[in-house]
Design a protein around this nucleic acid. Structure first.
Length: 708
DNA sequence: GAGCCTCGAGTTCC
DNA sequence: CTCGAGGCTC
């Protein structure tokens, strides 16, 4: 039976057929894995391998209870192209906003109150707990059993480290009384004493030692051989959750209690605090205990306790509005500023970088630091106010450096008493160091730009790097390094060249990729396949990839959503050529698009060279129309809504977020394209204009009734 | 027109 | 992560 079953569509399979199929697939995939990984001699084509994996996943999705203990979908190292399989998070793993001072914490408190329309003296309870310096992990339990563990990755997609997570003592393999689906999120870390012992062992056995516990934890979790992870002393604190089939509690603190009862370890310094002064008091207590905790922490996290309020607050593009991380002050080190060099970005921006005598800051050796712009070097901000009390930076100076947010190295100050004799004030270049074109700094702007847009090789290569970057075309195997090498050899000079790479440099060509240093038949085939995969591209990624100034990831998605298809978008931009007319007005009416961005986009389409390059690119692409938001049964899908006057039961931001989630476009001003004006008390000119234009006007109450 | 909020662009090291 | 600047609100 099983042999016939393999030809059947998954939804036609009976249960016993499915069981047999899963068994067959498990052994076929395992055999392919061994051939690929251990013997480095693949027996089947990658596409066939992927098909096996997909079929396995599809059957498992339909018959979850038949999932085998040795399921290929969970096995570490199962995917051939990279060490770990990828996992798309059911609920995104976000990062947190940061507070660096008491004022920032007070501001967080008032921002939350403002958003929720709470009085200054109304209670607003938060949880406060140490921020562990480890790495985030998401644990998925189904029916009380741990089925998957994934790293954070880019927040949307992480790595499957299930086998490794199973070896961590603090992570229960099964739970009693948990919801059917429960994703527990927390931090994997290594305690100080375990770290010291591990390093001692490593040194003894001649293995590599780790710079700090964080790196040790990360290195240990990302072992392809779970047996190695098992020998590493990792621990886990639970602090939150992702997808859940039933709520854990009404409050953050209640949910943490529940997780504790289920068998997780929650940090013992977690408290609920009612007011900013209590938040700060708990911060100081934790800071005072920092050295005796036995593990690294880098701050304190506050979260609004009431989950209903959390839901109302929602998310900004990368962070929740209901939480913030209060960071401890950064460590500082002293070193020498050897040289100031200039880098050229994809927009032509000239950015000075400090080359430093390498120095250890916070467990990492730093040798470069950004200097932002000419004013920053001179000791001024963009308004001309002194920073570093007006002290400028010169080559040869002794400077203090720190890692902003414990990541990005920055120069804090300069020690004038140690300034070498004859050190010269730094002269910011007036020519692009790469192409020699004039560098121009517009009046009132902080950044100088290279004007050789079409001839500057630095700009061209940076634009290409942007094009292949993660948020744009995200071509696996074609990173910044490869782009640079291909550019230098003239293989890729513009985006379209990427899609003809396999013709120009395929196996039979004059200069085949597989003969290049560092490449072989396998990696070359993989790259061509990865490129082919991106011929079908979502509209938003295409727009972002074009690298139009002022159009980042968010705005690209906004434009894609607003126009739906490439043809509609391009036609409108061409029609708006003169910064005038209905298309121009429509573009400017999009909430979030102003004159500057609109001008940049329209001018991009008007520019012959850029347009020709885009046309060459489009010949290779199948652009997918933008998905409109969930609109099923939404009464306002596709409508353009404007809010005006005072809103009484929700804040403006809430109103906007809700409307957008229902597929409506929220605009800032009333125009012929407006479908609905929601007018509260105090509405003025917008109401009048809406009435003139015959736009439907409703009260807030009517609006709420409409959207349910 | 000022003040806030958010986004864009550039940056480091593993 | 930070800084500058664009866009929106008041």
């Amino acid at each position: 039976m099983a042999s016939n079953a393999s030809d059947k569509a998954v939804d036609e399979l009976g249960e016993s057929e499915a069981r047999g199929e899963l068994e067959r697939l498990a052994s076929a995939i395992a055999a392919a894995d061994i051939a690929y990984h251990r013997d480095d001699a693949p027996e089947i084509a990658d596409a066939d391998y992927d098909a096996l994996k997909r079929r396995n996943a599809a059957i498992e999705a339909r018959f979850p209870h038949l999932k085998r203990a040795d399921s290929p979908s969970e096995r570490v190292g199962a995917a051939p192209a990279q060490g770990f399989g990828k996992v798309v998070h059911a609920v995104r793993m976000l990062s947190l906003g940061n507070a660096f001072s008491d004022e920032d914490v007070l501001e967080f408190d008032s921002r939350v109150r403002r958003y929720l329309n709470l009085d200054a003296d109304a209670a607003l309870t938060c949880t406060a707990e140490p921020k562990i310096d480890g790495l985030s992990l998401s644990l998925r339990y189904e029916g009380g059993r741990l089925v998957q563990a994934a790293t954070r990755g880019d927040g949307t997609e992480g790595e499957n480290v299930t086998a490794n997570a199973r070896t961590i003592g603090d992570i229960p393999a099964s739970l009693r009384g948990a919801p059917q689906v429960l994703e527990v999120r927390g931090e994997v870390y290594m305690a100080h004493e375990d770290f010291a012992a591990l390093n001692a062992r490593q040194a003894e056995s001649g293995g590599k030692t780790f710079a700090n516990p964080r790196n040790a934890a990360a290195g240990s979790l990302r072992q392809l051989d779970a047996a190695i992870t098992a020998a590493r002393p990792l621990r886990f604190f639970a602090y939150g959750w992702g997808e859940i089939s039933a709520p854990l509690a009404d409050t953050q603190s209640g949910a943490l209690k529940r997780l504790e009862n289920l068998g997780f370890t929650v940090n013992p310094l977690t408290r609920t605090v009612a007011r900013p002064d209590e938040m700060l008091a708990h911060y100081r207590r934790i800071e005072a205990d920092r050295a005796t905790l036995g593990y690294d922490i880098d701050g304190v996290v506050y979260k609004v306790d009431d989950l209903d309020l959390q839901r109302r607050l929602g998310f900004r593009s990368t962070t929740p509005r209901w939480a913030i991380a209060h960071k401890f002050p950064a460590e500082i080190a002293t070193t020498r500023l050897e040289k100031i060099e200039i880098q050229v970005g994809r927009t032509g921006a000239l950015s000075p970088v400090a080359r430093l005598t390498p120095v250890t800051v916070g467990g990492v050796v730093v040798s470069n630091a950004t200097l932002h712009n000419a004013d920053y070097i001179a000791g001024r901000d963009s308004q001309g106010n002194p920073i570093r009390e007006g002290r400028d930076l010169r080559e040869g100076d002794w400077v203090t450096v720190y890692r902003a947010g414990d990541v990005i190295p920055k120069v804090r100050d300069v020690d004038l008493s140690r300034r070498p004799k004859g050190a010269q004030r730094y002269e910011f270049p007036t020519k692009c160091p790469r192409c020699g074109s004039d560098a121009v700094r517009e009046e009132g702007e902080a950044v100088a730009y290279c004007t050789g847009n079409l001839i500057c090789p630095a700009q061209a290569v940076e634009k290409l790097k942007h094009f292949v970057s993660r948020s744009a075309f995200d071509i696996e195997g074609l990173g910044a390094k490869q782009v640079e090498a291909f550019f230098d050899d003239g293989w890729i000079r513009e985006p379209a060249d990427i899609f003809t790479l396999s013709q120009a440099h395929g196996p039979g060509s004059d200069a085949p990729l597989e003969k290049r240093e560092g490449w072989g038949p396998k990696s070359a085939t993989n790259l061509f396949a990865a490129i082919d995969e991106r011929r079908r591209i979502p509209l938003a990624r295409l727009i972002f990839g074009l690298g139009i100034r002022h159009v980042g990831e968010t705005s690209a998605a906004l434009l894609a959503r607003s126009y739906g298809s490439w043809d509609a978008f391009a036609a409108a931009m061409r029609a708006a050529r003169d910064h005038d007319g209905p298309e121009w007005e429509a573009l400017n009416a999009i909430d979030g698009v102003g004159k500057v961005m609109a001008g940049a986009v329209v001018d991009f389409f008007h520019e012959q060279t850029a347009r020709a390059a885009v046309d060459r690119l489009l010949a290779h692409l199948d652009v997918q129309d933008a998905e409109t938001p969930r609109t099923e049964g939404s009464p306002v899908a596709g409508k353009t809504v404007v809010f005006t006057g005072t809103l009484e039961t929700m804040t403006r931001a809430e109103a906007k977020a809700t409307a957008e989630s229902l597929g409506a476009k929220v605009a800032g001003s009333v125009s012929g394209k407006t479908d609905i004006l929601v007018a509260g008390p105090g509405a003025g000119s917008k109401l009048k204009k809406a009435e003139e234009l015959g736009v439907a006007v409703m009260t807030e109450e009517e609006w709420r009734a409409l959207i349910g």
